[in-house]
Design a protein around this nucleic acid. Structure first.
Length: 268
DNA sequence: ATGGTAGAAACTCTA
């Protein structure tokens, strides 16, 4: 039974942190790596460096300065055509591919808008964009029906559960954990009947973070993290899940991203 | 109520 390891990581500049991918590959041995915030136009993507790490199949969707997603794979893949241009912005926040495994496997790599600082749709256009993006994604999944043989992952910029943040009470008014965002994410998850691969293994009573702010004096001592990065699988794959990992040590690497890699393993 | 840090890019935006 072939094992498939999939990693999602908001790398926060693929060119700056290309050397850290070596450490990620060493520590997690992924078959597929999904990146967000590559901040790199496609013509400048470091293809040779990534190929040298053992990822001959790559799909990239980047732009200058902001956003950008990429899928790096040991397994052949095809870029999905016809997926939406979210909020008609052309801003490189989604890349859908089909992996060439027996039976095929759809993989959707998302970078959901962060949403700015003020959790008010009327006062803050970035928050409105985040909610609109989530509503579009929900409608998209609703129209397609429950996902089958599919993985949905990325930096979703929402920490949905009480123990996905360091203090539920103190975070209720902070963008990423407000009730309106949490409800929107739950609607999306329900629309696709997605199964949370990390919480499949880690009980909801246990704290679990994938992001720690750059602004803390000592991120590890303060440990005021949030679980913003997610891996969801379709219900038909839930029984195939065989493990997961959050590479917390990556937050302590030299020139670290503020997000750490998150891995799910399944026996296909 | 505010500022703290980081990256890309280019004198400012986004997170």
């Amino acid at each position: 039974m072939p094992t498939l390891r999939i990693v999602t990581w908001n790398i926060n500049s693929v060119r700056l942190r290309l050397p850290l991918l070596t450490d990620l590959v060493r520590d997690l041995a992924p078959d597929v790596i999904c990146l967000q915030e590559t901040k790199c136009p496609d013509e400048l993507f470091p293809h040779e460096g990534v190929a040298g790490l053992g990822f001959p199949y790559r799909a990239v969707r980047g732009m200058k300065g902001y956003n950008g997603v990429a899928v790096l794979s040991r397994i052949p893949l095809a870029i999905r055509e016809g997926d939406p241009d979210w909020c008609e912005k052309g801003d490189c926040r989604h890349l859908g591919v089909t992996l060439d495994v027996p039976g095929g496997l759809d993989l959707h790599n998302f970078y959901v808008p962060a949403g700015g600082d003020v959790p008010d749709r009327a006062a803050n256009p970035k928050f409105a964009h985040k909610l609109d993006f989530l509503a579009e994604a929900t409608a998209w999944n609703q129209a397609r029906g429950p996902a089958r043989r599919a993985v949905m992952l990325g930096d979703l910029n929402i920490a949905p559960l009480e123990h996905d943040v360091w203090s539920h009470r103190q975070m209720l008014g902070v963008v990423s954990h407000t009730p309106v965002e949490v409800e929107a994410l739950a609607s999306w998850q329900q629309a696709g009947a997605w199964h949370d691969a990390l919480r499949h293994f880690v009980p909801p009573s246990e704290k679990l973070y994938t992001w720690w702010s750059y602004r803390a004096k000592d991120w590890a001592a303060a440990n005021r993290g949030r679980r913003l990065d997610h891996i969801w699988v379709s219900q038909d794959l839930a029984g195939s899940l065989s493990g997961c990992d959050v590479l917390r040590a990556a937050r302590g690497w030299a020139q670290a991203s503020d997000h750490v890699p998150v891995m799910a393993e399944m026996k296909l």
